[in-house]
Structure formats: structure tokens, C-alpha cells
């Protein structure tokens, strides 16, 4: 791989890093919705239980972030770059 190929690969990887990071940041700060009028729907219990949308959101965010990490690592493995 010559220098310009490497730079192209770096650009692709950097773009990917930014997309994943922006996704995490957007989801992360959406948690603030719980403290706003716009997020009032999250306070409601779901399906006749005591479980609220807020609690589901917390659990879902943690699981989603772990899922995103797995996808991110999978991209590197699929690239066959030999590093993951």
C-alpha cells in the first residue's frame, strides 16, 4: 500500500469514526429529553407495568452503545486490514 492509498484508507476510517461518534453523542445527549417538555412521553409507564420509557431508554442506550462497538469492530475485521 503506497502513501496515497494509506491516506485514502485513513480518510475512510476517520469518516467512519466520526459517524459512529456523532451517533453516540446524539443518542447520549437525547437522554436530556427526560428533563424537557418534549420528552414528557418518556415518563409514561409502558404496557400496564411500572416500567417507564425513561428506564427503557437508559437500558436501551447502554445496550445500543455496546452494539455499536461490536459493529465498529466488525467493520475493521471485514476490511481485512489484519488489525481486527
Amino acid at each position: 500500500m503506497n502513501d496515497s492509498d494509506r491516506l485514502r484508507a485513513v480518510r475512510v476510517r476517520t469518516r467512519r469514526r466520526m459517524v459512529f461518534s456523532l451517533l453516540v453523542l446524539t443518542l447520549y445527549f437525547s437522554f436530556v429529553l427526560n428533563w424537557t417538555e418534549a420528552g414528557a412521553f418518556l415518563a409514561r409507564p409502558l404496557g400496564g407495568t411500572q416500567v417507564t420509557g425513561s428506564l427503557v431508554m437508559f437500558v436501551a442506550l447502554i445496550l445500543l452503545f455496546i452494539g455499536l462497538e461490536l459493529i465498529f469492530l466488525w467493520f475493521y475485521r471485514r476490511e481485512g486490514s489484519g488489525d481486527e
Binding site: V24, L25, L55, F65, F72
Partner: peptide, 21 residues
């Protein structure tokens, strides 16, 4: 109650970014 989870989410969410960035 629920508000205590802000700190838990804050502490956890740095780790995906640690991996990505």
C-alpha cells in the same frame, strides 16, 4: 430514583467514544 442514573450513563458512555476515537 431515576435521576441517579444520569451519572451511570455519563460514566459508561465515554467507552464507546474511547474505542471509536
Amino acid at each position: 430514583g431515576f435521576d441517579g442514573l444520569v451519572l451511570a450513563l455519563g460514566a459508561f458512555s465515554a467507552w464507546p467514544l474511547m474505542l471509536f476515537l
